[in-house]
């Protein structure tokens, strides 16, 4: 059950990254959330043939990697995991859209290939953005950001609880799987005869656990209200927000690479 232990490792790795104390980590989580969402919207708002305009957007992840003190390759590796879906769906573009749009050194490049490339670039940029958000912010601070967006406590609380118990449940799954596969060495997955009992029993145990957790809460005075931290906004947060938004709007309004290229080639 390699994928389960991978997930535990994954979550813990991102968790550890979020404990760092860099410039980016210290920013207000809400500011980071807003910038990330704005970044993703700008990224996907470019037309399917507009690959050149996407290039300035690479600056944002690069800044987050360096200022946030995040190692490049582990995060990049994770962003590959999502690529297959996009590759699979996008492959119809070069097949179906054969209109030549560009000629470059006598090669005609069809619209399909350009839109395929832009799709892949968008996929990378948006995935990097999400992973960088969590690895510079952490789940508890995301919860704070959600609260400052006035998302009801009840949702934020259960969001945090789900996250909290994911590693507990994943560990239980690993031991169930180990127990199963030790006694059924020839099987790749779990045989249909065991489907119900295996997951069902885990479900019942989980249900009872929820009961105990609730007991643990009321025994310590819980009455439906969860405490939630707040973080104050600082001037730096505000500046970061403004600079990033202005930068993103500029990339949207002006084709920066083309301007640079025109200057250089003197067109």
């Amino acid at each position: 059950m390699a994928n389960v232990s991978d997930s535990i490792y994954e979550i813990r790795y991102l968790d550890e990254l979020s404990q760092k104390n860099s410039f980016i980590h210290k920013l207000h989580p809400l500011v980071k959330l807003i910038v990330s969402i704005f970044y993703i919207i700008i990224t996907v708002s470019f037309g399917k043939y507009e690959i050149l305009s996407l290039t300035p957007l690479t600056i944002y992840p690069i800044i987050l990697f360096t200022l946030g003190d995040i190692k490049f390759f582990p995060i990049l590796k994770r962003s590959f995991l999502v690529l297959p879906v996009v590759l699979g769906l996008g492959i119809f573009n070069p097949i179906l859209d054969r209109e030549p749009l560009l000629t470059f050194m006598n090669f005609a490049i069809t619209g399909g290939w350009i839109s395929y490339l832009s799709l892949i670039m968008k996929c990378f940029l948006t995935v990097l953005c999400a992973l960088l958000l969590i690895s510079t912010t952490g789940i508890n601070n995301i919860a704070i950001a959600l609260r400052s967006l006035l998302i009801p406590k009840i949702f934020v609380t259960q969001f945090l609880l789900t996250y909290r118990y994911i590693s507990v449940l994943l560990e239980e799954i690993i031991s169930i799987w180990t127990a199963y596969s030790l006694r059924a060495p020839e099987q790749k997955g779990i045989s249909y005869k065991s489907w119900g009992p295996l997951l069902g029993q885990l479900l019942i145990r989980t249900y009872d656990r929820a009961q105990r957790i609730y007991n643990g809460m009321v025994l310590r005075g819980f009455s439906g209200e969860f405490y939630q931290d707040k973080i104050r906004f600082s001037l730096i947060d505000f500046c970061y927000l403004v600079i990033m938004i202005v930068f993103l709007l500029l990339t949207k309004l002006y084709n920066i690479p083309l301007i640079l290229g025109n200057i250089l080639t003197g067109v």
């Binding site: 009840i154 609380t157 259960q158 945090l160 609880l161 789900t162 996250y163 909290r164 118990y165 994911i166 507990v168 449940l169 885990l202 479900l203 989980t206 249900y207 656990r209 929820a210 009961q211 957790i213 609730y214 809460m217 439906g224």
Partner: peptide, 10 residues
């Protein structure tokens, strides 16, 4: 609330 949280994890 805890039931939702833990079932989500499940």
């Amino acid at each position: 609330i805890p039931l939702m949280g833990v079932m989500g994890a499940f």
